[in-house]
Design a protein around this nucleic acid. Structure first.
Length: 597
RNA sequence: GGUCCUAUAGUUUAAUGGAUAAAACGUAAGAUUCCGGUUCUUAUGAUGGAGGUUCGAUUCCUCCUAGGAUCACCA
């Protein structure tokens, strides 16, 4: 039972004794004391005014006196207006610290084998071009939220739906066929996804030329785009693909293989992974079946031209196309098929889609459709929707070539970290591999923290320079604090000071020490809330609060030079546990922390 | 036009319906720097607008304003 709950229980006892009235738990409001006031926990007394028929101040005093007399964990109190501020007995804080040291997974609820399954879909790339900054936000959010839900006791299955079929892939394939001269990743030294992306761009360029010619001939723009020979050829290629044309399929497989090799490398560098990958080429037919089934049950309808639709006007939405007149499937159809396969494969309790907010409407519709075709879980799907990433210079536009490539960006961040480390000479004496590994942690930590500290729903601006700052609310500052603590712990060992053993419970604590213990005590609740709210940002802000507080403590108090052995031991244990919680919270964000940097 | 999301210091982020709206970056001045690039002080400045619910609203409701997204036989 945590501290707040203990105090709640005491108040539930106190009120009937003092005022002869039973109360509901919902009336008991306990919050953390603001730092301008003395105490650690605050009871709001306004809700008791009616039943006690006394002023908020009087209630505060009576309640405070009762608690000090009857609740051993309360040491003292003060009352300001309707707020009863309580100071906790130091012994309680020290006991709590002792408990934390004994819990190897402090803060997390480990998933039991029979825990419910939450499937989290993220990343979901197209295979016609490499990943960019927008995908990075998606991947980081997906990975982090998966870690957070694991820590909340869910059995998490991380999944990826790869959009490996469709007209966009055919465009790359066609351009490669026409202009590629047999170029391969091996022959060009290019990463596979970049190579395929290169031909997607070439298609676009050549297509534009043809469109321009047709416009000259007086054709309308819309028509010109459709009638350009390259586009017609690409569509022809898609038809061949759907008809299992051997040559087209072979080309498709070869180029997809290049792309996957490239993606794997990017995912590895980014530190994300998946438990199960689905491919749309394997799920879209399944979706067609479900739609046909819905059609026969009368939940969908067919128009004269043969296309199939869902009528969602009764929900305030529009009509939605599910199958084209020629019988081919659309995006929505594929998502229905993918959902079916997933539920065949896993006993999913909750399905989460990490997808950008431009698809809010899509998922609103998907939830209704899944429900209509008979999947009871459809209504409850979670669309974890996030805003887009902009640069200080403005929006990324592929046409203007201002898209920030994921590989380039990560490389740049790591290089900056490396340069900074070399400049300061902090890593002299370490091997090249160690230096590289630390630069990786710091560069990626900067990138990840900067993106994850922002509320996912909001659009954000990514500023590489600010992100890698070593002060303020940044990843490197948090990593630095961890390294600093490790440095102290190493020194302690060098000096033959033992950190094992229990902390002495009979000692006074400084305010700063208490506030650190309070923060440590908050950790489990922060994880829980981050899970409920789907918000890695809460974890990020918590980690920052913790290191900010620790650095103040570090500045104001001696650890190794403290002469009182019991106090020194307590401070070392406190430092060690804070380092551990820093590490845990950062790992919930997918960020590694170094022991030196 | 329909639907959805967002709105807090110059900027990036905080604040279960509770106290004087909190930090960071930046800028300006100063102090500290003893265990790791730390820490502190001062100055600077914000809840888009109007109503409502409430003892109390940044938070909940309504309307308005601004921005974004979406409403394709694209994915």
């Amino acid at each position: 039972m945590n501290l707040t709950q203990q105090v709640e229980n005491f108040i539930l006892q106190a009120i009937p004794q003092l005022y002869h009235q039973e109360i509901d738990l919902s009336l008991v409001q306990i919050q953390k004391t603001k730092k301008d006031f003395d105490g650690e926990l605050t009871v709001v007394t306004f809700p008791f005014v009616k039943l006690a028929r006394k002023s908020p101040e009087a209630i505060g005093v009576e309640l405070g006196e009762w608690l000090v007399a009857n609740a051993p964990i309360i040491k003292s109190f003060n009352v300001i207006k309707g707020f009863l501020n309580l100071s906790i007995n130091p012994r309680y804080w020290l006991q709590m610290l002792q408990m934390i040291t004994q819990d190897p997974y402090y803060g997390s609820k480990l998933p039991k084998p029979d825990a419910p399954v939450m499937m989290i879909e993220y990343s979901s790339p197209n295979t016609n071009k490499p990943l960019h900054l927008g995908h990075i936000r998606n991947n980081l959010l997906g990975y982090s939220i998966a870690e957070i839900q694991k820590a909340n006791g869910w059995n998490v299955v991380k999944t990826n739906i790869v959009n490996d079929r469709g007209i966009h892939i055919c465009k790359s394939m066609l351009a490669w066929q026409k202009f590629g001269n047999g170029e391969t990743p091996e022959s060009s030294g290019m990463k596979g996804d970049h190579l395929v992306g290169k031909y997607y761009v070439i298609f676009d360029k050549e297509h534009k030329k043809q469109v321009a010619d047709l416009l000259q001939q007086g054709m309308s723009e819309d028509e010109a785009k459709k009638k350009a020979p390259l586009m017609i050829e690409a569509q022809e290629m898609l038809r061949k693909w759907e008809n299992d044309d051997v040559t087209v399929r072979q080309l498709w497989e070869m180029m997809n293989k290049w792309v996957y090799a490239g993606f794997d490398q990017t995912y590895k560098q980014l530190g994300v992974d998946f438990d199960k990958i689905y491919y749309e080429s394997e799920t879209y037919l399944e979706g067609k079946n479900k739609v046909e089934e819905g059609l026969s049950k009368g939940v969908f309808y067919k128009k004269e031209d043969g296309s199939v639709w869902a009528d969602l006007t009764q929900y305030g939405l529009d009509e939605k196309l599910l199958l084209r007149a020629d019988g081919t499937s659309v995006y929505m159809t594929q998502d229905i098929g993918t959902a079916k396969l997933r539920y065949d494969d896993y006993p999913i309790q909750k399905m989460v889609y990490v997808v950008g907010n431009e698809q809010n409407y899509h998922f609103q519709v998907l939830a209704l459709l899944l429900d209509k075709v008979g999947f009871s879980w459809g209504k409850d799907l979670v669309h974890f929707s996030y805003g887009m990433v902009e640069l200080p210079e403005g929006k990324m536009k592929s046409r203007e070539g201002t898209v920030v490539d994921a590989d380039d960006l990560m490389q740049e961040m790591v290089q900056t970290a490396l340069d900074t480390a070399n400049e300061l000479g902090k890593l002299d004496g370490l091997s090249v591999d160690e230096v590289q590994s630390i630069a990786n942690m710091v560069g990626l930590g900067a990138l990840k923290y900067f993106i994850l500290k922002v509320d996912p729903r909001k659009n954000m601006t990514f500023n590489p320079k600010e992100s890698i700052d070593f002060n303020g609310n940044t990843g490197p500052f948090i990593q630095y604090t961890h390294a600093r603590i490790q440095s102290v712990l190493r020194k302690a060992i060098d000096q033959g000071i033992s950190i094992s053993g229990e902390v002495q419970l009979q000692q006074d604590l400084a305010e700063k020490e208490i506030s650190l213990l309070r923060l440590l005590a908050d950790f489990p609740a922060v994880i829980e809330q981050a899970g409920n709210d789907f918000s890695p940002a809460l974890i990020a802000n918590y980690a920052y609060d913790l290191v900010k507080e620790y650095n103040q403590f570090y500045h104001d108090f001696s650890i190794l030079k403290e002469t009182n052995v019991a106090v020194r031991h307590f401070r070392l244990v406190l430092s060690r546990e804070i380092a551990r919680v820093i590490k845990s919270s950062m790992s919930l964000l997918g960020i590694d922390v170094p022991d030196r940097m």
